[in-house]
Design a binder for these strands. Structure first.
Lengths: 106, 106
DNA sequence: ATGCTATTTCCATAATTTTCGAAATTGGGT
DNA sequence: ACCCAATTTCGAAAATTATGGAAATAGCAT
């Protein structure tokens, strides 16, 4: 993973609204959620939501799939895993924190 | 970890210069690095560096300790672990990506 | 006290991000 | 062809962030 890409993804997640949005999609699991459903849960204007969503899609953290008029959004797990892997690599280049990370994921 | 705090940390890391800076500190290990040493490696004006550094300190990702006139900076591993843990929690609330994360950290 | 080096704060500017109403678009259903 | 619901694009204002030169501060050494 390139530093630039990691930074873009971190920035995408580094906004409370988008992190909340991402969280909702993660918890929705493989079924994903329609944009409209997400909007119902976040209670923000559709244009604002669309911008945030686009940011997550552009950075590769979320995927979208059309089903008729609704657009299903899904958290892109591999994308997130790559990012976590990058952070873990950076953090655990030396062994100091490896045990703690292991514990966090246990 | 609160969502707000996680978002602030992610945003702090979500800037190429700061991510690079953080990376340098992580790789410096427990000895840390003086601000001046970091500046030598990044080649940016000291005031700009100071701003970025402050952001990392404020969000709890970096700690500082005075040694005479120089200020030693260190990556705060527990802080990063908490963040990775938060992301892993969000991501792995369902089991879909747990194996991949395990692999990334192996 | 004075000087020296390291670092921060002050200040201003440019750039980017956030927000969202209104209009446009997309994709069926009738 | 027309309509309806879902979603995006446009356009524009407000807020925040990024950047860096110049001045201020901190902490020793002499």
């Amino acid at each position: 993973m390139k530093l630039e890409k990691a930074a873009a993804q971190l920035e995408a997640l580094g906004n409370p609204t988008r992190l909340q949005l991402y969280r909702i999609l993660v918890r929705a699991g493989d079924d994903g959620l329609a944009v409209g459903s997400v909007q119902g849960r976040l209670d923000i204007p559709s244009s604002t939501l669309s911008h945030h969503l686009k940011r997550l899609v552009d950075t590769g953290l979320v995927t979208q799939e059309r089903q008729a008029t609704t657009l299903i959004c899904r958290a892109n797990y591999p994308g997130m895993n790559a990012l976590i892997g990058y952070l873990a690599d950076e953090c655990c280049a030396d062994a100091v924190c490896a045990p703690a990370v292991g514990k966090a994921l246990a």
